[in-house]
Design a protein around this nucleic acid. Structure first.
Length: 497
RNA sequence: GGUCGCGUGGCCGAGCGGCUAGGCAGAGGUCUGCAAAACCUUUUACAGCGGUUCGAAUCCGCUCGCGACCUCCA
C-alpha cells in the first residue's frame, strides 16, 4: 500500500495530498524564462524539476495540460519608473530587433531542454502574443477598483486589495511592514504605495517595445502575463503553479493578488517552488558572475569545471537532490553523478534483456519476493512524498542489486513470482526512462568502432578466412555500413542499398 | 534590520521520534589470463550547549556558522 501523492504547497507551508479540480485532468503552469540571455544551470534545474512533476503526473495516469510561458516583454531591469525592458536593452546592445533577441534565446532554451530530455510543455505561450488579454485584465482590475492610472501607466493598488484580502500570504510577508517600510526610493511618485506594482507602463521615448492601449503606448507589467495566460489556458482556478524560489516574492505574490482581485477566486490551489542551485554555497546568478551555462558544462569550457559533463550526468545530479533543497554544484558531485548515471543505465540495458521463466525444480523465495516488493514500494513512497527523487533513485539502486544478481545467476528467475518479476522490470524501466526521464547516452565514436572491426576484417582476409570475412561484411551491412575492398586498402561507406 | 530556510560520515545527498537511505570515494573478499563491471562484507555521522521523552539527526530553547527573499533573477 502506498501513501497518496503529496506535494508541498507554499501557500499552506505543508505537504498536502494532491487533489486535482477535475480529475483526471490536471492543469499546471510553470514560469518560463525571460529570453534576454542564455539560460544557466540554475534556471535549468528548476525546469528539470518541474519536468519530473509533469512526468510523474502522467505516470500516475493524469491527463496534464502543462503551460510554460516565454517572457518576451515586460520584465524590467529594475523597478524604477524609467526601468528598461530586459529584452529591449539587449536588443539595443546587440543591435537586433527585440524579436530577434527573443527568438535567439528561445531557440537556445529549447535546445537545452531537449538535450536534457525535458518534455515540451503542452502550451508555450508568450507575453507579446497575449497583449489583448492583458489589456482586458487591466480593464477588469480598473473596473473593480483594484488598479489606478497615473500618467498613462496603470498600477495595482495593494493597499486597497489588502483591505479585503491578504496580500503577502504566499510569501509570508506582513502587509503592514511592507506598507510602512522603504518609502524613501526615488522615482516612485506615480505609485500610491511603493509596493504597488505595474500592470501597464507608459513607454518612455527611447523604449522600443510598445503597444497601443487605452492608457498609453506602452507595455504590460511582468506579473500580469502569467495571470492572464494561466487563466486563459487553465481556468480562473487551476491546480498547480510552479517556479523558482526567487519568484515567490514579488512575482507570485502579485499573481495571487491579481487573480484573486480579478476573479474573486483563489487562482491556484498548489504553489510549488524549486530551490536554488548554488556554487560554493552561493546562489548561481548572472550578477554574481558564478553562472555556468549548459554548453559550458557539456564542453567543460568554464573555469569552475575541470572536465566536461554530459547532459544526463547533470540530470542525474539534479535528481539526487530534492527539488526544495538548495543544491551545490561541484566537480566532485558531478563526477559522482556521472558514475551513478552510468550504473543506472547499465542496469537498464540488463533489465531490458531479462525475461521470465518457470522451473518447477526451483522453489519460490518468499523472502526475496517480499523484499523486492518492498523496494518497489519505497520508490513510489519517495515520489509520492513531494517528489523525493533522491529516495526513488535509492530504491532503484536497491532494485538494481537484485537485477545484477539475476544477471550473474546468483538469483534464479524462477525463484521469483511472475508478477513480482514483471513489477520489478516495469518499475525499473518506467522510472528510469519515463518518470526520471533518463536516456541512454551512447558513445559517439562510432567511426573508431568501425575501424576496429575493419582491422579484424582485414586480418581475416589476409588469413583467407572467407567465412569470417563474409560474416563481418554481412553484419556491417545490417548496420547500414558497406565495406569496400579497394586495391590497396579497405574503406567503408554508408550503405546505399 | 525584517521574513524564511539550512548546518548529516572524505564528498554529494535522503531522513519528519525507535526499524541498513542511496551514489561517489576508501578497506577487505568473491569472480578473473590482465583489467573493468558486478556481487558480498566493512570504516568514517548527525554544528555546539541545554531541555522534553522509556528513546532524538528527527520535537523545544539558546548559541555559533551559512544561505535565500525583502530590488532584476529559475
Amino acid at each position: 500500500m502506498q501513501p497518496p501523492f503529496k506535494i508541498y504547497n507554499t501557500l499552506t507551508r505543508k505537504k498536502e495530498v494532491f487533489k486535482p479540480i477535475n480529475p483526471p485532468l490536471v492543469g499546471m503552469y510553470v514560469c518560463g524564462p525571460t529570453v534576454y540571455n542564455y539560460v544557466h544551470l540554475g534556471n535549468v534545474r528548476t525546469f528539470t524539476g518541474f519536468d519530473i512533476l509533469y512526468r510523474y503526473l502522467l505516470h500516475l495516469g493524469y491527463k496534464v495540460r502543462y503551460v510554460r510561458n516565454i517572457t518576451d516583454v515586460g520584465h524590467l531591469v529594475d523597478d524604477a519608473d524609467d526601468g528598461e525592458d530586459k529584452i529591449g536593452k539587449k536588443a539595443k546592445l546587440d543591435n537586433l530587433e527585440p524579436m530577434e533577441v527573443v527568438q535567439k534565446y528561445t531557440n537556445d532554451f529549447h535546445d537545452v531542454m531537449n538535450i536534457l530530455n525535458n518534455k515540451a510543455p503542452s502550451i508555450e505561450p508568450s507575453a507579446t502574443g497575449h497583449m489583448i488579454e492583458q489589456i482586458k485584465m487591466i480593464e477588469d482590475l480598473l473596473e473593480k477598483g483594484f488598479a489606478y492610472e497615473t500618467n498613462g501607466s496603470v498600477y495595482f493598488d495593494v493597499r486597497k486589495y489588502s483591505e479585503s484580502h491578504e496580500y503577502g500570504k504566499l510569501s509570508g510577508r506582513n502587509i503592514d511592514e511592507l506598507l510602512s517600510g522603504q518609502r524613501e526610493l526615488d522615482g516612485q511618485d506615480e505609485k500610491r504605495e511603493n509596493i504597488d506594482f505595474a500592470l501597464w507602463k507608459k513607454a518612455t521615448k527611447g523604449h522600443i517595445m510598445r503597444w497601443p492601449s487605452p492608457w498609453s503606448d506602452g507595455f504590460p507589467g511582468w506579473h500580469l502575463e502569467c495571470s492572464v495566460m494561466g487563466q486563459k489556458y487553465l481556468g480562473k482556478t487551476f491546480d498547480i503553479h510552479g517556479g523558482g524560489m526567487d519568484l515567490k516574492f514579488p512575482h507570485h505574490e502579485c499573481e495571487v493578488a491579481q487573480g484573486t482581485a480579478c476573479n474573486d477566486v483563489e487562482p491556484v490551489n498548489y504553489w510549488m517552488h524549486a530551490n536554488m542551485l548554488t556554487v560554493n554555497g552561493q546562489k548561481m546568478s548572472k550578477s554574481l558572475n558564478n553562472s555556468i551555462l549548459p554548453n559550458e558544462l557539456f564542453s567543460g569550457n568554464n573555469p569552475l569545471l575541470d572536465q566536461a559533463y554530459s547532459p544526463m550526468t547533470l540530470r542525474f545530479a539534479f535528481m539526487q537532490a530534492h527539488y526544495r533543497s538548495t543544491m551545490d554544484i561541484s566537480n566532485e558531485a558531478l563526477k559522482a553523478a556521472s558514475k551513478g548515471y552510468r550504473k543506472m543505465i547499465n542496469g537498464l540495458r540488463l533489465v531490458k534483456g531479462l525475461s521470465y521463466s518457470e522451473d518447477s525444480a526451483i522453489e519460490k523465495d518468499a523472502k526475496l519476493n517480499k523484499q523486492i516488493l518492498s523496494i518497489i514500494d519505497s520508490v513510489y513512497r519517495g515520489m509520492n512524498d513531494d517528489l523525493n527523487t533522491a529516495v526513488a533513485i535509492a530504491g532503484l539502486f536497491n532494485l538494481l542489486k537484485k537485477i545484477n544478481g539475476i544477471h550473474l545467476g546468483q538469483i534464479k528467475i524462477p525463484a521469483l513470482e511472475k508478477e513480482v518479476f514483471d513489477k520489478m522490470v516495469n518499475t525499473y524501466i518506467s522510472f528510469v526512462e519515463d518518470v526520471l526521464g533518463f536516456i541512454e547516452e551512447k558513445p559517439q565514436n562510432l567511426e573508431s568502432a568501425i575501424e576496429i572491426v575493419l582491422q579484424d576484417y582485414k586480418e581475416a582476409k589476409e588469413a583467407k578466412d572467407y567465412d569470417k570475412v563474409d560474416l563481418i561484411r554481412g553484419q556491417l551491412k545490417v548496420m547500414g555500413i558497406s565495406v569496400k575492398d579497394m586495391k590497396d586498402r579497405i574503406e567503408w561507406a554508408y550503405d546505399e542499398q
